[in-house]
Amino acid sequence: MTDIYVYGIGITAPGMHTWIEGAAILRGDQFYDKTELPAFTPHLLRPNERRRTTALIKLALQVAEQAVENSDISAETLCSVFASSEGDIDIVDKICDALTQADRPVSPTHFHNSVHNAPAGYWAIATGCQRASVSMSAGAGSFAGGLLEAAGLCAVEQCPTLLLSYDLPAPEPLKPLIHIQEAFGSGLVLGCEPREHNLAKIQLALDTVTHTTLDDTALEALRLSNPAAQVLPLLKAIACKQPQSVVLPYLDGSCLNVTCTPL
């Protein structure tokens, strides 16, 4: 498959609020202190829109902003992939709860925010970007699935692409059914052409071998806490500037091999 270049990275997770901080932790230069995440505050949303949006939408936009800022490409020229295993579980909970009440007060704002592509819609409105945008899920393998989808937009449509991957823990009563313990979001700006500012070159191939784990116990726990956190071994390879093949979980009986050459 074609070479894909990584132009910019964004990350938001407990104890990792920016890519600079995340890279230092993944390199082992900084101790990983799993502090609580502050409220998500994407700058692009106007205050009235910020009130109408949910935590998941804000998380997606926050990592999107960060990744694009760290690249040398403007937001409106990027195709986008919004990868999330579960979508907005908070909204599902609110709507399904409303449906059990006598007058079934389904909120119109909740309803239009309930679509899987709600973060993509707000991103397009905030940036004016009119390019192709795919919101998708591959369950627990959503990051790998999103990476393949983004590679397709880069390679076939010849369009640099913003890949966002994010999920949030579920509220009660869904919490026991959805195994997400921590909030996690990442953004990668990808494309097929080398640019002035390249962080890595990657190649993708489907595989059936065992996926890569992290040696550090706390970081491995974070990797296992959220489908979106499966990006961590790839980010570690980029942060450590060591050429490496990382294997990411994908579907039942299948994983994604990413040959990563940091630049």
Binding site: G87, V115, H116, N117, A120, S133, V134, S135, M136, S137, A138, G145, L148, E149, L206, Y250, L251, S254
Partner: peptide, 8 residues
């Protein structure tokens, strides 16, 4: 490979 596209 497999995925679900969900863009309303």
């Amino acid at each position: 490979p497999a995925s679900v596209v969900s863009t309303a």
